[in-house]
Design a protein around this nucleic acid. Structure first.
Lengths: 140, 140
DNA sequence: TTGGTTGCAAACAATTTGCATAAAT
DNA sequence: ATTTATGCAAATTGTTTGCAACCAA
C-alpha cells in the first residue's frame, strides 16, 4: 500500500502486481541514471523473484509512457530506454565508450531553441538533445 | 561517368551499379528534405526500374555512413533514416503535424554544448538535436 | 584472375499481438 | 460477475548475415 498505488490510480490504471513492481524497479534503479531498457526491467524483475513476462513489461512501459509516468528515449537504434518522468525536463549526455548517461539542462540552449523555432514560423512543442561525448583524453 | 564515380572512389569503394544508383537517389530525393529510410531507397530503386536487393541497400547505406558520405538519424524508434552528408553539420526541426523537416544550425547552441560537456569532464564527439515543432497558430 | 559485391533466403533482435487464463474491482 | 490484465507463444518489423554466383579492377 505504498504511494505507487496512488500514482497508478491517478493515471487511471488498475493496481496490479506487475505495474507496482515495475514502478518500484524504475524508482530504485540506479542503472545508467535510471535509464532502463525493457530487457533491463525484465531481468531486474526476475532477480527480484517476480515472475512477470517480457511482453507484460513492454505493455506496462508503453502504458506508463502514455500516462506520462515514464519517458521513452531512443538514444541508439535498435532499442528504447525508459526513465521515470520526474516533472522537470532535462537533456542527456551519453558516453560513446562506456554508455554512461548524464542528465543536464541549460537555459541558454532552451531559450535559443524557442527563438529558432519562432524564426521559422513554428512554436516549440518538445525537443530531444543528446550529446555524444567521451571522457577527456587523460595524458598517458 | 558522372561525379558519383569519383565520390565513390575517393571513399575507397568500388564503383558498382547499386552504389551509384543509391547515391543518385539520395542526391535527387526531395522526400522529407532528403531523409530516407532504407525501405524508401529500396522502393525508389525499383520505381526507377533497378533491381537491387533490400539487403544491398542496407549494406551500401551502412558503408556510405562509414565512409562519411551519409549520415544516419534515429528520429524515431524502429527505423533509421539516412541523408547525404553535405559537409556542414546541422540540426533538425520536425513538424509534429505535417512531418516537415527543416534544417538549421545555431552557433550559440553548438558552443554551449561544448561547454556543458567540458563542465562534466567530457569532450563533445557528436550530438543530435531535434526540435519537435508545430506551425504557429494563425488567427482563425 | 581475384577479391570485393550482390541477391536471396535464412537468421536475428526488439517489440507486438492473439488468445485462453487469472486477477482486480 | 465483469472487465481488464497477464503469460506464453506465435507473429511482425527492421536489419544483418551466410553463401554461391557475379562483376569490377
Amino acid at each position: 500500500m505504498a504511494e505507487e498505488n496512488q500514482e497508478l490510480r491517478k493515471a487511471g490504471l488498475k493496481v496490479t502486481l506487475p505495474r507496482v513492481k515495475i514502478l518500484q524497479i524504475l524508482e530504485t534503479s540506479q542503472l545508467a541514471s535510471g535509464h532502463m531498457s525493457a530487457e533491463d526491467v525484465y531481468m531486474a524483475l526476475r532477480t527480484a523473484g517476480e515472475d512477470v513476462g517480457l511482453a507484460t513489461v513492454y505493455r506496462v512501459l508503453t502504458q506508463f509512457e502514455g500516462a506520462g509516468l515514464v519517458t521513452r528515449h531512443n538514444f541508439e537504434s535498435g532499442h528504447s530506454v525508459f526513465e521515470l518522468a520526474r516533472g522537470e525536463h532535462h537533456d542527456h549526455m551519453v558516453c560513446v565508450d562506456s554508455g554512461e548517461v548524464v542528465e543536464f539542462t541549460d537555459p541558454v540552449i532552451e531559450q535559443r531553441q524557442r527563438e529558432i523555432a519562432a524564426q521559422h514560423g513554428y512554436e516549440l512543442v518538445d525537443h530531444s538533445l543528446v550529446l555524444h561525448v567521451r571522457k577527456k583524453a587523460s595524458p598517458v
